[in-house]
């Protein structure tokens, strides 16, 4: 059986319809963030297999029923991995069904999460997680109540400051993680600096740079995309499992602090998944959002009003953030 393999750009019109049909025939959904496909054609020039690359993730892995078990997957994965390497993306991951895990294990991937879920996360550089664990455990503080908070802080508001202060009062130590993925309008380094500036008065906290294994495109891609509820639920569970299994033990985390979420359904769902999955090892403490004159503070309100309602925006931000925004971004905020 002669099969031809090629790498194509995901937006090449020539193949798109056939790729979408093949993916749908295997019960998967075409995902719009894919940049490249490795595609396989048979001698009659019919598309029989494809696998996509989106950032550092392999996805939409599909092979025509009659061609399964013919070694097409191995050839396609080789091609797409070489393609990723050429783009200097060495550390790759894949979400796949439990019955396909062994195929990828034989191609150098290691499963990080439980095989009982309908989607399993595999990575090809598990030693990076090990290195992260070593690095985190250097920041371990011994105590009865050790809290973790993850935040985007885009930008850092009075609400974030309130959440951290509540945790710092109730706990021996607080580890704050700033989500690493680049975001609009504030970059990771901006957000990290705003959190650090806003926490200077607190003695019992460590501000950590986020990483690839905590709310990142790697463990929680649907957080950054508009995905169906089911996918989002699976990814939230995978993110929580990684936190419980690999991250929390390194720092001796006993509590996870979260802010209540009135608006965003993805974050609401994530909060619910945490409450279901983190206990009993880790207790989840939900703090009701800080409200100013009846309106709960949210970073999205700040983002939407940065340019016009400068007085409103300034009322939602701590002085440290206001100073940062004036100094580094030239916003004309008025206190």
């Amino acid at each position: 059986m002669q099969i031809q393999y090629s790498i194509v750009s995901a937006n090449s019109m020539l193949y798109q319809t056939a790729i979408e049909q093949l993916i749908a025939s295997q019960g998967l959904r075409y995902e719009s963030d894919i940049e490249y496909f490795c595609i396989a054609h048979n001698q009659q020039q019919v598309l029989v297999g494809c696998v996509g690359l989106a950032g550092h993730i392999l996805k939409c892995f599909a092979i025509e029923n009659n061609y399964q078990g013919a070694g097409i997957s191995r050839a396609m994965v080789t091609e797409i991995i070489l393609c990723a390497y050429q783009l200097h993306r060495k550390s790759l991951s894949i979400f796949t069904a439990p019955d396909k895990v062994s195929i990828f294990q034989s191609m150098g991937f290691t499963a990080l999460t439980s095989l009982t879920r309908s989607s399993v996360l595999l990575v090809n550089r598990p030693e990076q997680l090990l290195a992260l664990q070593h690095q985190l455990s250097r920041h371990k503080i011994i105590g009865k109540r050790i809290a973790a908070i993850e935040m985007n802080a885009n930008p850092f508001t009075k609400g974030h400051a309130y959440l951290i202060e509540q945790a710092a009062q109730a706990c021996d130590w607080v580890h704050v993680f700033v989500v690493r993925e680049e975001n609009k309008p504030f970059s990771f380094s901006d957000r990290l600096a705003m959190v650090r500036n806003g926490c200077q008065h607190l003695r019992n906290i460590t501000v950590h740079e986020g990483n690839d294994y905590m709310i990142s495109k790697r463990t929680f891609p649907s957080y950054f995309l508009k995905e169906s509820h089911l996918v989002n639920q699976l990814h939230a569970e995978i993110d929580c499992e990684i936190f419980v299994r690999y991250i929390a033990p390194c720092l001796g985390i006993t509590h996870r602090y979260i802010g209540s979420e009135p608006n965003c359904p993805i974050t609401q769902n994530y909060n619910q998944v945490m409450m279901a999955m983190l206990p009993p090892q880790i207790s989840v403490v939900e703090i009701k959002r800080l409200a100013l004159s009846g309106i709960s503070i949210s970073a999205s309100t700040v983002r939407n009003n940065l340019l016009n309602a400068t007085t409103l925006v300034a009322s939602l931000l701590p002085i440290s953030t206001i100073n940062y925004l004036i100094e580094h971004h030239g916003y004309a905020l008025q206190i």
Binding site: G71, A75, V77, L82, M107
Partner: peptide, 18 residues
């Protein structure tokens, strides 16, 4: 420099070095 050789296909070997 980093380099690769081979494939994941049956009866083959995939070698990576950094």
């Amino acid at each position: 420099q980093s380099a690769v050789a081979g494939t994941f296909e049956s009866s083959d070997l995939f070698v990576e070095v950094e």
